[in-house]
């Protein structure tokens, strides 16, 4: 192949490789020695919790939240049921009261949309969130 065209290929591949190396470096420095977490097993979920899980899935909550590693890991919900009571969970879900001021503006705007859900659905969702236990530590940790 030609000299100039060969140089082009070398430079393009080199820049792609540089980008991939930097991306790998970024992922590696961000996650030193990470190990997967597992949600603590709990008792058989109630009917309310099951319908709350269905609401969670139907609303696409996993695009912003993760549970047991499924979904967006940026805002994990594992253990949220241990950290907040039902009233607080309801506030955080639909951005009311104190939660509205604590949430980033863009998140609050998104959550305000969930106020349009029926009260049954919101209560079911809160029940599901309340049921979420803390992640179990890996045995070696």
């Amino acid at each position: 192949m030609l000299m100039r065209a060969t140089w082009v290929r070398i430079i393009v591949v080199a820049s792609g490789a540089l980008a991939i190396l930097l991306a790998l470096f970024f992922a590696w420095t961000q996650n030193p020695g990470t190990t997967p977490t597992h949600v603590a097993a709990r008792a058989e979920p109630s009917l309310m919790v099951k319908s709350g899980r269905a609401v969670y899935q139907a609303q696409g909550c996993a695009s912003c939240h993760a549970i047991a590693g499924d979904g967006n890991p940026r805002y994990p919900l594992d253990g949220v049921g241990d950290r907040r009571d039902a009233v607080a969970l309801r506030d955080w879900t639909i951005a009311t009261d104190a939660a509205a001021t604590l949430l980033p503006r863009r998140a609050a705007v998104m959550k305000e949309d969930y106020r349009d859900l029926g009260s049954d659905e919101i209560e079911a969702l809160v029940a599901y969130l309340s049921s979420l236990g803390a992640p179990a530590r890996p045995a070696s940790d």
């Binding site: 930097l22 992922a27 961000q30 996650n31 030193p32 590693g69 890991p73 940026r74």
Partner: peptide
């Protein structure tokens, strides 16, 4: 960090 594969994908 949000997991190796997640952060790799974003980068």
């Amino acid at each position: 960090g949000a997991g190796f594969w997640w952060d790799l994908s974003m980068a």
